[in-house]
């Protein structure tokens, strides 16, 4: 299979990727080829989590995925979480709790928190800290991020 051209399925839409170097990370392809700038790149070694996306329902660092190997997989980025102007409950909770300062880590954190709450509806403080260990924030000190997660857990529990 020669694959200078390949198709990625991102947020439910097919993106034709042309002329990429085949070793490129999914992060670079999302940002530079597909024009989806929401996922951030900082460390490019899986340490910071700012590039977190879902690939086939699994939270991964897009900088560690070789883009050409993600053909036929369902990729969801921060752009696919909610339409502009109608934030998800997690996004709204981040705003309400003041969990956003410079905002660079926020897209990755929103992805990780959605994944966490999908798997664990009522996480403890320790579980939240452990599950978000791969998302580095240098502004907030994490307190308000944890508050935001707890807020969503309470809201979702109350809605049942």
């Amino acid at each position: 299979m020669s694959n200078q051209f390949f198709t990625l399925r991102v947020n439910g839409a097919d993106h034709e990727i042309a002329d990429s170097w085949l070793g490129e990370s999914l992060l670079d392809v999302l940002r530079d080829r597909a024009g989806l700038m929401g996922s951030k790149g900082a460390c490019t070694q899986g340490e910071c989590g700012s590039c977190s996306v879902m690939v086939d329902d699994s939270l991964v660092c897009s900088c560690l995925v070789m883009a050409a190997t993600a053909v036929d997989q369902e990729i969801v980025t921060i752009e696919g979480v909610a339409p502009i102007g109608a934030p998800s409950d997690v996004q709204q909770a981040f705003v309400d709790a003041g969990a956003v300062q410079c905002g660079f880590c926020t897209p990755g954190l929103i992805m990780a928190v959605h994944d966490l709450l999908d798997r664990t509806s009522e996480p403890t403080d320790t579980e939240i800290r452990e599950e978000l260990a791969g998302n580095v924030c240098r502004c907030t000190g994490y307190g308000r991020i944890i508050e935001a997660v707890q807020q969503v857990a309470v809201q979702r529990g109350g809605a049942k």
């Binding site: 085949l22 070793g23 990370s25 490019t44 070694q45 899986g46 900088c63 560690l64 995925v65 070789m66 050409a68 190997t69």
Partner: peptide, 21 residues
């Protein structure tokens, strides 16, 4: 890819033949 992609991203490794995922 958690080791290999770090090396590729850093330019320490550049696969030139075939990559089998």
């Amino acid at each position: 890819g958690t080791d290999a992609m770090v090396e590729i991203n850093d330019g320490h490794r550049r696969p030139n033949a075939m990559v089998i995922a």
